[in-house]
Nucleic acid binder design. Structure first.
Length: 439
DNA sequence: CTGGGGATGGGGCCC
DNA sequence: TGGGCCCCATCCCCA
């Protein structure tokens, strides 16, 4: 039995220990700023530290100290945050230095992510978004084991050792308790990484999605688990609660600037310039939307609520527009395409055929081939099918109260589809028609 | 087995 | 705020 949250929990604990300087046996001095860390963690995360610490392995009784001048404390903060959280906070301003530092430290994963980031930045013409562009590496974020294995393989691949800037002899001294606060520790994932992108339209978002950039892994996880949520309520509840726990944990330790309203679905973060300020966060996942209505709509995919039943076939939908779309395609035969030969048909060149609750169009030729007598042709509806619905949408169609009767009776208002038709539709036949639509 | 198309569902966003 | 449209991803069916 495997507890999936164990790795992340372990990493969180280690990160907490690092913040509180508990069991930290390694000091890294970067331009006068001291970073405390665990040698085990550094060993497992960086080829450079692996080499360094393996050399000093015999002297484990004494704390190890490393000094760097090749990059800034801020850059090392990004690196160290990544090591302890799996989340890499990249911006257009720091990516070059982070990649340089990662190269120096032999962190091939970070290098790869930086490369991807730079590529995507080049693709995006509006460079302002880079300032708040951050990303979470899917592999490293979702599973610590995967990250470790990834690093292991990269170490094996790399044969050359880095040019050493290490000065183990240079003591750090003066380690103060406020070292970490001075490092401005703000993991990228705790920011709302989607906000900057949302500002710049669909294309940017799509690019980012395609490149798996700026798309928190939790979101990916959520999307991939959607089908599971549909099929297994109990499991979805568990995953939701786990996600909620993770979210809460992140939010509790989040940087200043978050405000949560009732239900913790309102996220406000102080952004400079003209970046959006209000977003609505889903309490069940990491999805963030700009409008409350969108959140309300999104929540239905968690609650499973389907308030819009199809009066014709009983299938339920979470959204009215989906129901409308379903009804148009399945029950109204709105598409002016012959279902058999796929040719465009009009009221003159084709006819509407009804099979059970389904209706579609056939051209006259295909109709003749199939046999016009063998199909129930819906003559009445043709004069109404394609006329736009300009009446009350709620009264567009109704079904009689008895939904279980064996025939279908759909009554439309004058402007829309009008089907008053009795079809000899045995239960078996109806089941045959409806079942394929129900997943 | 595979590719194409249909149905469905989710998100963004306009009205 | 809801309705509705568009786009996209995914699943399923069928040739």
């Amino acid at each position: 039995m495997e507890i999936s949250s164990h790795q992340s929990h372990l990493l969180e604990q280690l990160n907490e220990q690092r913040r509180q300087d508990v069991f930290c046996d390694c000091s890294i001095l970067v331009e006068g700023k001291v970073f405390k860390a665990h040698r085990n963690v550094l060993f497992a995360s960086s080829g450079y530290f692996k080499m360094l610490l393996s050399q000093n392995s015999k002297e484990t009784s004494q704390p190890t100290t490393a000094t760097f001048q090749a990059f800034s404390p801020d850059t090392f903060t990004v690196i160290l945050d990544f090591v302890y959280s799996g989340k890499l906070s990249l911006t257009g301003q720091n990516v070059i230095e982070v990649m340089s530092a990662a190269s120096f430290l032999q962190m091939t994963d970070v290098i790869g992510v930086c490369k991807t980031f730079i590529k995507s930045s080049l693709d995006i013409s509006e460079k302002e978004k880079d300032r708040y562009f951050s990303l979470s590496d899917k592999e490293v974020n979702s599973n610590g084991i995967e990250r470790s294995s990834l690093y292991s393989s990269s170490w094996q691949e790399e044969s050359s050792s880095p040019h050493s800037h290490l000065s183990p002899d240079r003591g750090t001294g003066g380690i103060s308790g406020k070292s970490w606060s001075e490092c401005n520790y703000h993991p990228a994932s705790q920011r709302n990484t989607q906000q900057p992108l949302a500002k710049h339209g669909k294309d940017s978002i799509k690019k980012a999605k395609h490149l798996r950039l700026s798309q928190p892994s939790e979101v990916t996880h959520f999307k991939s688990s959607k089908r599971e949520a549909r099929t297994s309520d109990s499991s979805s509840h568990i995953s939701q609660s786990e996600e909620q726990t993770q979210i809460d944990a992140e939010m509790d330790s989040g940087p200043v600037g978050y405000q949560y309203g009732q239900g913790s679905d309102v996220t406000s973060r102080s952004f400079p310039d003209d970046l959006p300020r209000m977003q609505f966060k889903c309490p069940y996942c990491t999805h963030v939307v700009k409008r409350k209505a969108d959140l309300k709509r999104h929540l239905r995919c968690h609650t499973g609520e389907r308030p819009y039943p199809c009066q014709a076939c009983g299938k339920r939908f979470s959204r009215l527009d989906h129901l409308s779309s379903h009804f148009r395609t399945i029950h109204q035969a709105c598409k002016l395409i012959c279902r058999k030969c796929k040719r465009h048909v009009t009221d003159l060149t084709g006819q509407v055929v009804q099979e059970g609750t389904r209706r579609y169009r056939l051209c006259n030729e295909c109709l003749a081939e199939v046999g016009i007598d063998s199909l129930p042709i819906d003559l009445e509806s043709e004069q109404h099918l394609m006329s736009p619905s300009d009446g009350d949408k709620d009264s567009r169609w109704h079904l009689s109260e008895d939904e279980n009767r064996s025939y279908v009776e759909i009554v439309e208002d004058g402007s829309a589809d009008l089907v008053i038709q009795q079809v000899d539709d045995s239960e078996e036949e109806e089941e045959k028609e409806i079942k394929p639509n129900i997943r």
